[in-house]
Simulated scan of single mutants.
Amino acid sequence: MKHVTPVIFVTLVLAGCSSATTPLRQNAQITQFAGGESNTDRTSFYWLTEKLNNPESSTDDVKFADNTWYQSHYTWDGNYLREITRVGERRNNSGDKVPFQMTLRFSQAGEAVYQRMQINGRVMPMKNGQIGEVRSQAGEVVSKSRSQRNEGLSLIQGHWKDGVFTTCNGDEYRNIQFKQPLPKLLVDRIKEEENFAAFIGELGGKKIVVDQMLLLKHGGYACIERPMFNG
C-alpha cells in the first residue's frame, strides 16, 4: 500500500452530513485495530489487539477466489505466539469443498508442542512445512496491521443509500476520495444504488480517502464483525 507515483484522487460528493471517528480505539494501555487487503487470489480482513505495544490476540477472515475460506484466532504472550485456532473450508483432491479445523500450540521457544488437524471429520497429521506456513501467516497479520496503522489506514465499512455513506458506527460522510480511479459505471452504481462497501482508507475531518476497495455488495449486506472463537 505504498505509492511511489503521484496519487490521483477521484472524489465522490454525496448528500448528507459528516462526522469523524478515530479508527483506533484505546482503553488504558490496550489498543485495537482492524485492517485488510485484497488481490486476485483472496480478500483478507484482520484484527489486532495489543497491550503495552505487544500483541495479545489477532484474528483473520480470509476468503479465496475459489469460494473457500478460513478464519483464525491467534493468541500471543508478549511477542511469543502461543496458540492458533483455525476453521474453514478447503478443496479436497476431487475438488469438492470440505470443512476443516486446526489447533496448534507452541512453547515459548517456538516449538509446536500440540497439533491437531481435522479435515472432513478425519484427523490428519501436519507436516513441518504446513506448521511453518501457518505461523508465518500469524506473524503477517500483526506486521500488516501495524504497517497500515502507522500509515493512518484502517478498515472502514458501511452503506451507501440515497447518496449518503453511513459507516457501521453510524457516522455519515458525503465527501469520499479514491486514490485509484474507479470505472464510471461503478461510480454511478455507488452514487445511485444501495450498496455495502468495505475498504482500507483514512478518516480525515469531513472526508474519507479510500486506499483499496475490499468488498462491494449490492443491498443491505451486514457489517463484517471480528470472528469469535470459544475457549
Results as ranks from 00 to 15, higher is better:
L24E: 01
S136F: 10
G204A: 07
P99Q: 04
K127A: 13
V4W: 07
K2N: 13
S58M: 06
A109P: 01
C223E: 02
S145Y: 03
N150S: 13
T21P: 07
T75Q: 15
T31N: 02
F100M: 04
T167F: 07
V141P: 12
S38H: 15
R116C: 14
T11A: 15
T11Y: 14
S38M: 14
T68F: 01
T22S: 12
G139K: 08
Q32P: 02
S107A: 11
E140W: 10
L186V: 12
A198E: 05
I200R: 02
G35A: 10
Y46K: 05
L14N: 11
Q137E: 10
W160A: 06
A34T: 03
A112S: 03
G201T: 15
D188T: 05
T59V: 13
A198S: 15
I224N: 11
L48V: 00
S19L: 04
L203V: 08
G78A: 02
T49V: 07
E140F: 10
E83N: 11
Y221G: 11
G35V: 03
K217Y: 11
K63E: 04
T40K: 11
L153Q: 07
I119C: 01
A109H: 04
S19F: 04
K217F: 08
L153S: 04
A65N: 04
V62A: 01
K191T: 05
R116K: 15
Y221I: 15
S58Y: 05
